[in-house]
């Protein structure tokens, strides 16, 4: 499935961990201003594929990526692409909340500071405030910005991580099962937040939870055994999947 104006495009992308192939020739377009969900059983390669979109696999020495991935038409694996800038443009939120063991303020300010986005302290403070507000965390932490980020609850930590990601003003946000370590109430907060952020960013979310995919996403891609089986509008995937494997997975036959 392709769009007229995709934010990111992947063509024939394969990922190998040593001799093992984790992702097999995936071709997909990620739309601008919409939420795309990757679903599929454990070990199907959806997280691995997600991590190729901002080259986080570079940090794993054994990982090798083939094929072409482009952000706004620009090949992100080309020699001219700076990985540091790429990761600022394509932010990431991880499965387990991973705030830095620093203050809440420092957690959010770190990205803008290393990328030189704030000229003055007041600019930085404005960015931190705006990011925390967007992440829906400002009211809870505005009086204790100097407290440690690790002292927050799990759900708050994850929203702090989202604030940290959006503080550098990314174009794409990748979320790797962002709610799998959270309780249902915190999960609902994150899902609301994703709905609010939609429209400003291209969001790609990997999830195990099919209801979550149905709730938050407009597009859903189903991965199985490293292959992209089906990619369509979320409504279509959940009501009238074309592939038998998709149907089996959604109806709970396996996974």
């Amino acid at each position: 499935m392709t769009f007229a104006q995709p934010k990111m495009t992947a063509r024939d992308v394969s990922v190998f961990y040593g001799p093992k192939q984790a992702v097999k020739s995936v071709t997909i377009d990620v739309p601008t201003d919409e939420v795309t969900a990757f679903i599929g059983p454990s070990g199907c390669g959806k997280s691995t594929f997600l991590r190729t979109l901002n080259r986080m696999n570079d940090t794993i020495p054994a990982a090798r990526v083939e094929g072409q991935i482009a952000l706004d038409g620009e090949d992100i694996y080309s020699a001219g692409m700076d990985v540091v800038q790429l990761r600022a443009r394509v932010g990431m939120v991880f499965q387990k909340p991973n705030p830095f063991p620093k203050s809440i303020f420092e957690n959010v300010a770190y990205g803008p500071r290393i990328h030189g986005l704030a000229r003055h302290k007041s600019d930085l403070e404005a960015i931190v405030q705006r990011s925390l507000k967007r992440a829906g965390l400002w009211d809870e932490v505005k009086d204790r910005l100097s407290d440690s980020g690790t002292a927050l609850s799990g759900g708050q930590q994850q929203r702090l991580c989202i604030a940290r990601a959006i503080a550098v003003d990314p174009e794409v946000i990748l979320m790797d099962e962002p709610c799998s370590a959270l309780d249902p109430i915190a999960t609902a907060r994150i899902e609301e937040l994703i709905a609010e952020l939609r429209g400003n960013y291209a969001i790609v979310i990997v999830t195990h939870n099919m209801q979550q995919a149905a709730r938050v996403s407009q597009r859903t891609a189903f991965f199985h055994l490293g292959q992209l089986v089906e990619y369509d509008a979320t409504d279509t995937i959940f009501t009238a999947p074309k592939e038998a494997r998709t149907k089996d997975y959604i109806t709970g036959r396996y996974g």
Binding site: T59, V84, L86, A88, I114
Partner: peptide, 22 residues
């Protein structure tokens, strides 16, 4: 923990920044 490295890399820190800041 690798999660701290992931967090720093994921926000666009260079390797030396990851090492010396985190």
């Amino acid at each position: 923990p690798p999660s701290i490295r992931d967090a720093a890399f994921g926000i666009g820190a260079s390797r030396i920044q990851v090492v010396f800041h985190h």
